[in-house]
């Protein structure tokens, strides 16, 4: 049962409280409180980060900086106003409901480190770095997330923000498959970014959610495709590779066999939607 509630306003105060109390941080609380009430987390102390004096959402050196406490609703507004990274809008609008997006935060999604986390997928695709305080360490997201719910954080550290690349002139595709058509936790998801040069690949990034202990992305495969002609065969090859690389589990939402098949099908579907015709 929670007995202590703290509201630090400076980085040092937050860090000291974290060491002293071993308490759980929260911003939106949309993950934490659900877990506490389900009995998955037992703690007597919670630390509210919302009162921290932190920087604003901003664009700097062609990077998008999202500090802790920025909600999905605020991020969407900012993305629209600045007309950057439209794939983020496509992903974020599928997270929870408008009400959840008024409270939930991208930083909370990363800290939660779920392989189904939709913003985790977005951050893998946009080569995000996680910025920690008080250490000021900057760690690539794929190194920061170690497994389901596991992150690389020292006792005194917390996530201060995330920094994502801003990409121009990329085609993109995002889809998440769930058991109903609204407010879904994904059974499997795909995010694809592709930059072309004369019908050939200049840069490609492809990532899958919920089909491995962490988001599945493979930079070697991506690199090997640079200069290749974009056609269905290429995507069949990709679909096969990721079918083999995926290592999903069976859980209440779907079996591992179905999830592997989804990896294959979603890859081809992404191609068809981007290059042939839009199918639902």
């Amino acid at each position: 049962m929670i007995k202590n509630y703290f509201r630090p306003s400076t980085i040092d105060e937050l860090s000291e409280l974290k060491i002293k109390t071993n308490g759980y941080l929260f911003s939106g609380g949309t993950d934490l409180f659900v877990k506490i009430r389900a009995g998955a987390i037992n703690t007597d102390t919670v630390i509210d980060t919302k009162y921290l004096e932190n920087e604003e959402l901003k664009i700097e050196n062609k990077k998008l900086f999202i500090p802790l406490n920025t909600t999905y609703t605020e991020l969407r507004k900012f993305i629209k106003a600045n007309q950057i990274n439209p794939i983020i809008e496509n992903i974020v609008k599928t997270i929870g409901s408008p009400m959840i997006r008024n409270r939930g935060t991208p930083v909370g999604n990363i800290a939660n480190a779920s392989p189904a986390g939709d913003f985790v997928l977005a951050s893998y695709l946009l080569n995000a770095s996680v910025i920690l305080k008080p250490s000021s360490k900057k760690i690539p997201v794929e190194e920061f997330i170690k497994g389901p719910g596991k992150i690389e954080l020292e006792k005194e550290e917390f996530i201060y923000g995330i920094e994502l690349e801003i990409l121009d002139d990329y085609k993109f595709y995002f889809e998440k498959v769930g058991r109903r058509n609204a407010m879904i936790i994904s059974i499997a998801s795909i995010g694809l970014l592709i930059k072309e040069d004369n019908e050939k690949i200049k840069d490609i990034r492809i990532a899958f959610g919920s089909v491995a202990p962490t988001i599945l992305r493979n930079k070697e495969i991506e690199k090997s495709l640079i200069g290749e002609k974009i056609d269905k065969n290429l995507f069949k090859y990709l679909a096969n590779e990721f079918f083999n690389l995926s290592s999903p589990i069976t859980d209440v939402r779907a079996s591992k066999e179905y999830r592997k098949q989804l990896v294959y099908n979603l890859t081809l579907k992404a191609y068809i939607n981007l290059y042939e015709k839009v199918v639902i």
């Binding site: 509630y5 929260f26 609380g29 949309t30 409180f33 659900v34 009430r37 389900a38 919670v46 509210d48 919302k50 609703t73 929870g96 409901s97 408008p98 009400m99 959840i100 008024n102 409270r103 407010m183």
Partner: peptide, 27 residues
């Protein structure tokens, strides 16, 4: 539902709808 999924507990928080089952009272 008590988990933020059903919207039955909706209130306006500073004018914006939120599920009150997922908001800490101290907040």
């Amino acid at each position: 539902c008590d988990t933020g999924m059903c919207g039955i507990c909706t209130v306006l928080f500073d004018g914006k709808p939120v599920p009150s089952c997922s908001v800490f009272a101290a907040r």
